[in-house]
Amino acid sequence: MSDPMHDLDVTVWVGKNGIDAVSEELSEQLDDRDAVKVKFLRAARAEGDTEVLAGDLAEAANGTVLDTRGHTAVIQR
């Protein structure tokens, strides 16, 4: 079985502007693909840990969190 965390390239980066700045971009990417890999940069993590941020971002983009590892999450619709 393939590992989506390993197989996908990061296409969304969350930085100091937080999840609001990328939620629309993530939603658009989820329209075109099964899953999107998101990297939470240090500036974004000041707002909370990766699991919480990933959950909030997924909710904002009408998706669900498939997996989180380190500072990276895979979100699907």
Rank of each mutant, 00 (worst) to 15 (best):
D56W: 13
D49A: 10
I75F: 01
E59Y: 13
E59C: 07
G63Q: 07
A54W: 09
A21E: 11
E59R: 13
R42F: 12
V74A: 05
G63N: 03
A61S: 14
E51F: 08
H71E: 09
V65T: 10
S23N: 07
R77F: 00
N17Y: 11
N17K: 15
L26G: 00
D56M: 13
G48N: 09
D49Q: 07
K37Y: 06
D67T: 13
F40G: 00
A58G: 07
V74F: 05
L8E: 12
A21N: 12
V52K: 14
D56E: 15
A35E: 04
R33S: 06
E24Q: 13
V36Q: 02
H6L: 14
A58F: 06
T64L: 09
T50K: 01
T68A: 12
L53K: 00
M5K: 08
L26K: 04
E59G: 11
A61I: 08
T68G: 05
I75W: 00
V22H: 04
L8Y: 15
Q29Y: 03
D3V: 12
A60N: 03
R42S: 10
S2F: 07
R45V: 11
L57N: 04
T68M: 10
L8S: 10
D67N: 11
L41G: 08
D67Q: 14
D49W: 04
G63S: 06
A43G: 03
L57K: 05
R42P: 04
L30S: 02
A46G: 11
V14K: 04
E47R: 15
K16G: 06
Q29D: 05
D67P: 00
G15D: 08
R33Q: 11
T50D: 01
V14S: 04
S27M: 03
E25G: 06
N17S: 13
A43V: 08
V12R: 02
D49G: 06
S23C: 12
R77D: 04
R45D: 00
D32V: 07
E24I: 09
K39E: 10
A54N: 10
G18S: 06
S2W: 07
T50S: 02
T11G: 11
D20K: 15
G55C: 01
T50Q: 01
L30T: 02
L53A: 02
R45W: 02
V12M: 03
Q29S: 05
E28V: 04
D7G: 11
A58N: 07
M1N: 07
W13T: 13
L57Y: 02
T68H: 13
A21Q: 13
D34Y: 04
D56K: 15
A44K: 02
D20Y: 14
A44N: 03
